[in-house]
Amino acid sequence: MPDVALWRRLLAEFLGTGLLVSVVVGSGVMATTLSPDDVGLQLVENSLATALALGVLILVFAPISGAHFNPVVTAVAWLTAKRTTPLADAGAYVAVQIVGGIAGAVLANLVFDQPAVAWSTTERAAGHLWLGEVVATAGLVLVIFALVRAGRTAAIPAAVGAYIGAAYWFTSSTSFANPAVTIGRAFTDTFAGIAPTSVPAFVLAQLVGAGLGLGIVLLLHPRRVAQPIPTTTELSRNPR
């Protein structure tokens, strides 16, 4: 999407990431309000809202920015596109994703009459949780870029939404799988929060998972894609 101005792409990434985090946090607050004594039902409500919203957000913003909403997706897109996109553009994507994630958490806090910033006290620091993040992120990268390389980009919104919704349940970490979302969730002391001290290890696990997922993609689809950063829409025209 080189014909789309960079500032528009960055705005789309900011809004998309912010709205995603707002949905994750807001649906978590609503779930604990509606089902205060049933943690399983809370997770159903939180995961369903996130899965549906993620699919919609990708559909809305993909024509503008590629709808990455995730620094590891941007990094893998840059690497698999033979780095034809300027590194500064990729860095700008990551920066606005992180800022958008924080803004989304603040927005959700305000919508539910919470303090604008309330550092999470939910510690998520254990080896099995980090392993869960490795698995969740590797799977996300595999889903996106296997579909990209197979020329089936139209399936990405539904596939990514379905995968994240399922990964809430089959990973011990409930599948953050996104450094920007992880950082944003540190700003809310609600159901979806993560203590700031737990963030670095989660992000490191996500980076490891992204590398693992990329390795699997390259084994399955060895031909590289020569496209600029917004892969999810451009590649539908020229998948190989």
Rank of each mutant, 00 (worst) to 15 (best):
R224D: 13
I102Y: 08
V134K: 06
E133S: 04
F176K: 01
D38W: 02
P63S: 05
V73C: 08
E234I: 15
G213F: 11
T17D: 12
A136M: 06
H68L: 14
L142S: 05
S35L: 12
V106Y: 08
L54N: 04
T190I: 05
A95D: 02
G127E: 13
I194R: 03
L87H: 04
V143C: 08
S198M: 07
G165H: 09
W130Y: 15
R124L: 14
L41P: 00
M30D: 02
N238G: 04
A95E: 00
R9W: 00
V29S: 07
L11Y: 00
V39W: 08
A116N: 09
G184L: 07
R240H: 14
S65Q: 07
L204H: 03
N109R: 10
A103M: 11
N46P: 02
D189N: 15
E123P: 00
V44E: 06
G211H: 10
L142C: 09
I164Y: 06
P196M: 01
T50L: 07
S198K: 01
N109W: 11
G16S: 10
V117Q: 02
L41W: 03
A51S: 14
A226W: 00
A150R: 14
T84L: 13
L140M: 14
Y163D: 01
T17N: 12
L10D: 07
M1G: 12
V94K: 03
L87D: 00
G184D: 11
P2K: 09
G28K: 06
R185P: 04
G16T: 07
R240M: 01
D37E: 15
S173M: 05
A12P: 12
I58H: 04
F202N: 14
A201V: 13
W7K: 13
S47D: 02
D3W: 12
G55F: 04
S198D: 06
R185T: 05
F69D: 09
F202A: 13
T188V: 09
A166P: 11
T80R: 15
F112R: 06
V25P: 08
K82F: 02
A154M: 11
W78G: 05
L129S: 10
V225I: 15
I144S: 12
W119R: 01
I58D: 04
T174M: 10
A67V: 04
F61V: 08
F191R: 05
D38F: 03
L218H: 11
D113F: 10
V111D: 02
A53L: 03
A167V: 05
L54G: 04
I194H: 00
N109Y: 07
F191N: 02
S172N: 10
